[in-house]
């Protein structure tokens, strides 16, 4: 009688197997426009900073853009990656001209475990944080039970980018 259970499960699995399986949730461009809808330009810039100064591994080089509206700097946009449990999580962070978080987006996520970091309520915890906040798991950022490693590594990634902005980009005059 249990064989009857197998038939619909098998048929269902075969059916959904035909659906494409993109793991990308947002492109960099989509995330940029969502964070800075008024921007007229995103200028790619490179920060002169020693990775060790912000607690990053050697060779760490997040992509950075300066969001502008005409001559006015609206803020900064970063695209970086961290390891979740065993796979890369690509994410983006948008900061306003004062260095406060506008949005954290998960761009690509590759493993089933820990995928809860994609949830909007969890990511919203970062909004408004600056380099003067702890931005530490279980302190000002709440954990998701069962997704601890992804939560911790993503939180550490945001902390690094906030420090990077503080160390390397803060002298940029904001008009």
């Amino acid at each position: 009688m249990y064989v009857r259970w197998l038939i619909p499960i098998g048929a269902g699995a075969a059916g959904v197997a035909q659906i494409a399986h993109a793991t990308q949730y947002l492109t960099v461009e989509q995330a940029q426009r969502a964070a800075f809808p008024d921007a007229t330009a995103f200028d790619s810039v490179r920060a002169n900073v020693d990775p060790a100064a912000v607690g990053a591994a050697a060779g760490w080089s997040p992509r950075i853009w300066q969001a502008r509206k005409g001559d006015k700097t609206l803020g900064w946009f970063f695209a970086d990656a961290v390891i979740g449990k065993s796979e890369l999580i690509n994410y983006s962070l948008a900061l306003d001209g004062q260095g406060a978080v506008i949005a954290l987006e998960v761009l690509e996520y590759r493993e089933a475990h820990g995928g809860e970091v994609r949830l909007a309520p969890w990511r919203k915890q970062f909004v408004g944080k600056t380099s003067h906040d702890p931005v530490a798991l279980n302190q000002d950022i709440k954990n998701i039970s069962g997704a601890t490693l992804s939560c911790r590594h993503l939180t550490e990634g945001v902390q690094r980018l906030l420090k990077l902005r503080e160390h390397a980009l803060i002298t940029q005059p904001v008009s």
């Binding site: 461009e29 330009a41 790619s44 810039v45 490179r46 080089s61 997040p62």
Partner: peptide
């Protein structure tokens, strides 16, 4: 990647304008 109308990146204090995008992670 520029949202039109595109403007050329400007060299700014302590930030080097990149001639090409930094490598992806």
């Amino acid at each position: 990647t520029n949202v039109p109308p595109a403007a050329q990146p400007e060299a700014v204090a302590n930030v080097a304008a990149a001639s090409a995008a930094a490598p992806a992670p």
